[in-house]
């Protein structure tokens, strides 16, 4: 169980990364915290010809607070963000979800953006990005662009990122005066979610985002609903997510959790 052979490029600047990606495209992979990619390499699931290590690029290691958003660079580790003093105040939903990402020993190396790039539909950070309506900042040698969360995840482990693009960072909106709730059901502590739900109060009602069920984390906005109208909406949403069976859970069980936890969380944020 050893990785296949590849070249290793230790980038010092973003320019190094963009040049490498421009030159090698899909044959190159960006190596950040490595917590997903390295396991895939060890299993020989992935066979890049070149790994571009971005973790020595200082400018990617920044967490920047603007008036209405937090911009998190590609080199920011999950532990860095957890330790960021403003986290609970600026990004309360992330503060709830981030401790569920893996374990302390993986959060210490794994990056926020790496988790998004990996686009595991059960992962917490993609869910948080979708729930908050954040943006992904993509950059290639040719251009820079911002992609909204809902457009970024294209499918199971697939994203809107082109082969020559680096996820330079993400921007998460700071939403004042809202309430947030997050709950995840996994087989064990630290496992990928069977179902993860994030609820936020919106000006017109509520948003529920669900991970672990569809191929991509999926959010739905509703006006204030109560009683059977809420039940009906959750039931329809649960079915629309297209849950499937695997060794850890059945589709029915996942739909049950969406209905029940969705209802609980919506109750919490609207309370």
């Amino acid at each position: 169980m050893k990785p296949p052979a590849f070249d290793y490029l230790r980038a010092e600047t973003v320019g190094d990364v963009l040049d490498g990606l421009a030159q090698h495209g899909g044959d190159a992979r960006v190596l950040a915290g490595g917590q997903s990619l390295m396991a895939m390499l060890n299993m020989r699931l992935a066979k890049p010809k070149l790994l571009i290590d971005i973790m020595r690029i200082r400018e990617l290691r920044k967490i920047e607070r603007t008036a209405d958003a937090v911009v998190i660079g590609a080199g920011v580790r999950q532990a860095d963000l957890l330790a960021w003093p403003d986290l609970a105040e600026a990004l309360p939903l992330v503060a709830l979800a981030l401790p569920c990402v893996g374990h302390m020993q993986t959060r210490s190396r794994g990056t926020i953006c790496g988790s998004l790039a990996h686009a595991d539909p059960s992962a917490e950070m993609p869910l948080a990005l979708v729930a908050l309506g954040g943006e992904v900042l993509l950059r290639s040698a040719r251009r820079r662009r911002r992609v909204a969360a809902k457009d970024f995840f294209a499918g199971m482990m697939l994203t809107a990122r082109s082969d020559d693009e680096l996820i330079e960072g993400i921007s998460l909106p700071v939403i004042n005066g809202s309430n947030f709730a997050f709950r995840e059901v996994a087989r064990r502590h630290g496992d990928f979610a069977i179902v993860a739900c994030a609820a936020t109060k919106t000006p017109s009602g509520v948003r529920l985002a669900v991970g672990g069920v569809a191929d991509v984390p999926t959010a739905r906005d509703w006006p204030r609903l109560e009683g059977s109208a809420l039940d009906d909406a959750l039931n329809a949403f649960a079915y629309e997510l297209g849950a499937r069976d695997d060794v850890h859970a059945t589709a029915r069980y996942r739909r049950d959790l969406v209905r029940m936890i969705g209802r609980d969380l919506i109750g919490e944020v609207l309370r």
Binding site: A249, T250, R252, D256
Partner: peptide, 28 residues
């Protein structure tokens, strides 16, 4: 004792999908 298996033992019929909505993906 997988929770989803216990669910099969104790939970009754599932709420049906909404009329005209998306049906459940057929069980594999």
């Amino acid at each position: 004792l997988v929770p989803a298996r216990l669910a099969e033992l104790v939970r009754g019929a599932e709420p049906p999908p909404p009329a005209g909505g998306v049906a459940a993906v057929p069980a594999r």
